[in-house]
Design a protein around this nucleic acid. Sequence first.
DNA 1: TCAATAGTGTCTCTTAGACAATATTGA
DNA 2: TCAATATTGTCTAAGAGACACTATTGA
Lengths: 208, 208
Amino acid sequence: MDIALLTVKDERLHVLLVRRANEPEKGRWALPGGVLDPAVDCSLDDTVRRVLRSKTHVDIRYTEQVQVFSGQDRDPRGWSLSVVYYALLPGDKVSAVAGDKAEAIEWMDAMELNRQLAFDHTLLLEAAVAKLRDKVEREALPLHLLPGRFTLTELQRTCEVVLGRPLDKSAFRRRIKEEPALVEIEGEFLRGPQRPAQLYTTAEDFQF
Amino acid sequence: MDIALLTVKDERLHVLLVRRANEPEKGRWALPGGVLDPAVDCSLDDTVRRVLRSKTHVDIRYTEQVQVFSGQDRDPRGWSLSVVYYALLPGDKVSAVAGDKAEAIEWMDAMELNRQLAFDHTLLLEAAVAKLRDKVEREALPLHLLPGRFTLTELQRTCEVVLGRPLDKSAFRRRIKEEPALVEIEGEFLRGPQRPAQLYTTAEDFQF
DNA sequence: TCAATAGTGTCTCTTAGACAATATTGA
DNA sequence: TCAATATTGTCTAAGAGACACTATTGA
């Protein structure tokens, strides 16, 4: 099981990588992963949460199964099978994710696949990002990438980062006006050297 | 690995079931499945094709991975994991699918989930149908469910069967007019006691 | 001729995109 | 006041749905 933990950092979609401490592919960067432990996990989703907790020490609000990768060529040790998940981390929690002493971690730009990852992890990452993007392209709001309170502009930026293209402000706001997933925090604004921006939060029953 | 082999029969979406010959759940209907054989299969997709060939003796044109189901409660024998696929069979090939002597088979209406299937197979089937429907809902044409040559009306009926709702003829044709996946078979018509209908076929490079 | 289905045309209404205009703050 | 960003309004063009119309065959 491998996980693409995605977040928005510096206006770009980033993914968490860990450096492999052992052979094969020692020293190369890879998606964090883990193995199913039937004694502990009630299902694969449990495995994902357990692994994420141990690697990040942060509570992850959302995970989704992407695809199974399998075959004899993806790992030099022979036939292997891996279920890929993506997970979403709010942008303000990035700094809370720290590697263990044993493991070096790094946030890599998830759109720029210039670095060579271990095994077939570049493919896995592409599939994960594609699935997320597809969902957002179909009108889903990636609220799990945002902090507890956010402005509409921040929400729009997040969508743009995931989609990799600019959105029209007017059309975007028109669309989400009807969105029950968003709740206006009455009287709360983000202030700066300009007109204050209304703060919103995610509805209780929001399902991504 | 379990497979929902889907086809259109009698203007309804149907799924192939096999009756379990062994315990547990002996005698109950289930989706056909198989186990991965690393010695033979280069990947899970190979497994699916191998299993389908052995069960149906028909060449299946299209398969797609749906989702992994896992947990300790889905099989009385304990923790289990299954990758679910759906596969599409052209409507004119239904009669070519025959069970072995050892196995009873049956086509069940895939929308009417009234029968109690073995294990959690009702859930697996629902997930498979939902994935197919979702794809067709987003403008994909389920050409793999159709024979080699077909009319636009037949194509529309097939979409309607998958979606479970009627489509407007005019709007439907307007949409697929631009569709490169469809190739008109010039001069070939389906004739009957009415105006002949132009026959179409699937483009070589069609990707569902 | 009629029945039956194939195929087209037209109207309306909704919506997305582009872009402009207005609003409200701190400095 | 100005700079900067928030928020709203307007115009237009494309597309979807509804529905009616025409076309072409066999009987």
